[in-house]
């Protein structure tokens, strides 16, 4: 069952999400899809933004999504996200992902490494899923590489409880052709099922 794990006081609740990936992995599209799904789910305030500036294939980049009950009035870059989604685990070696994630925040990683190996960062909630494996199993690839951005939306839904699969499906169908939408959604569902979440250590 999905649940909200954040309690940030009653006024101006806003969830900030940073997507980490490499150019070509579709982080910008993932950030957009999440904004769209959240809006459909009656969050009145959503924004999604790419890293401002030029984009290079393969280079580390981020995109962001803000989700709030009220229309969003700020457009500055996110300092400390509530949730970080990592599409490529090799980024841990080159980007300080933890520096932009708040303590007790949620970290969602596309990895084959089992959850118990991710124990060095005890101050976060961690969720893992083999999104690349799921994409390959469902023959969802683009230019020879598995499509990982859409399954990570399923992992996001599972781990955060902020958006439901129903609205992710709607957002996908809005953006993609019927056939593409349904193929992508298959991986979203699979990732939702296979995501394993660990509460932070106390």
């Amino acid at each position: 069952m999905a649940f909200l794990f954040f309690c940030k006081g009653d006024r101006a609740i806003m969830y900030e999400v940073i997507w980490h990936g490499r150019g070509g992995q579709g982080v910008v599209v993932a950030a957009q899809m999440l904004a769209e799904a959240a809006y459909l789910q009656e969050f009145k305030g959503v924004t999604s933004a790419p890293t401002f500036g030029p984009e290079r294939r393969g280079a580390p980049l981020t995109a962001s999504t803000r989700i709030a009950q009220e229309p969003i009035r700020i457009f500055s870059q996110i300092e400390e996200a509530d949730i970080a989604v990592v599409l490529d685990e090799s980024l841990f070696k080159v980007v300080d992902i933890f520096s932009r994630l708040r303590k007790n925040g949620l970290l969602i990683i596309n990895t084959q490494t089992p959850l118990e190996k991710w124990d060095e960062q005890g101050e976060y909630r961690i969720a893992v899923v083999d999104a690349a494996g799921i994409a390959l199993r469902h023959h969802l690839s683009k230019e020879g590489a598995p499509v990982v951005n859409t399954p990570m939306l399923g992992a996001f839904a599972r781990a955060s409880g902020l958006v439901s699969l129903e609205y992710i499906e709607k957002a996908l169908n809005h953006k993609l052709s019927k056939e593409q939408g349904s193929r992508n959604f298959t991986t979203v569902k699979a990732a939702y099922e296979e995501t394993i979440v660990r509460e932070k250590k106390d």
Partner: peptide, 12 residues
């Protein structure tokens, strides 16, 4: 309108 800040940020 502000480049990138609004031009490239999606919102409803």
């Amino acid at each position: 309108y502000d480049g990138f800040v609004l031009s490239h940020t999606m919102m409803p």
